[in-house]
Nucleic acid binder design. Structure first.
Lengths: 118, 118
DNA sequence: CAGAATCCCCTCAGATACTG
DNA sequence: CAGTATCTGAGGGGATTCTG
């Protein structure tokens, strides 16, 4: 019974700003992706926020992190774990739900909105 | 493509405090449920917050609201719509995901935690 | 009973600047 | 390149009081 508290916590952090977009950028990428590449793909995100999100996701086991400090500059890369991938599947179910029930949603005005790439 | 902004908004409000618990209390109840009954079932929630959550959910079409002002005191009741019910199904998928991947989650200490009834 | 009206607090996000 | 360190502002949540 009590394990379901986790559901609450899960939704709490995946709904933090930028978290989902970050997950989906990594899902699209397939390969390991660098910090700076994530930044440019996500557009407006500041390094502080991206760093916070990545730490949260790593701690939750949704992504993995590897650092190559033998090179200069250091190479820091991230990618989705299996559990992270499966969670994005569920988020896609939410998308299906929204497409079914939210008929009158308005398209966003931005030409290349990272939220809408989801 | 652009409709997916809705996913972001959806997760944003269903992860607001008390929203999920409210939805699941209504799912458990099946029949229409009164404002005060929701309050007592949810425990610590203040009327202001519950009122806010119910308005959000009604606006999103997840619940319906009916008022019987012929009686004294007024009878105000709520229940899940079909779309609301289907969204709770998806949240249960998140629960399944959590049970699969979050093995080491700690049970919460409260004896009758409304979050854990989910 | 079913909320509305105030007031307060605290966290989250962003801007900016800086470092190994 | 890959972050960290501060500072700031906005808003979401809570406590309390009041009303039709």
């Amino acid at each position: 019974m009590h394990e379901t508290c986790t559901v609450y916590q899960t939704l709490e952090y995946i709904s933090r700003k930028w978290t989902m977009m970050t997950l989906f950028e990594m899902r699209r990428n397939e390969d390991w992706i660098r910090f700076s590449d994530l930044r440019t793909r996500l557009g407006d995100i500041t390094p502080k926020i991206l760093s916070e999100r990545l730490k949260e996701l790593e701690q939750e086991g949704l992504i993995e992190h590897r650092v190559d400090s033998s090179t200069v500059p250091i190479k820091s890369e991230y990618h989705l774990t299996q559990s992270g991938y499966e969670l994005t599947d569920i988020i896609l179910d939410v998308k299906m739900w929204a497409l079914k029930w939210k008929i009158d949603n308005k398209p966003c005005e931005r030409l290349n909105c990272c939220k809408c790439r989801l």
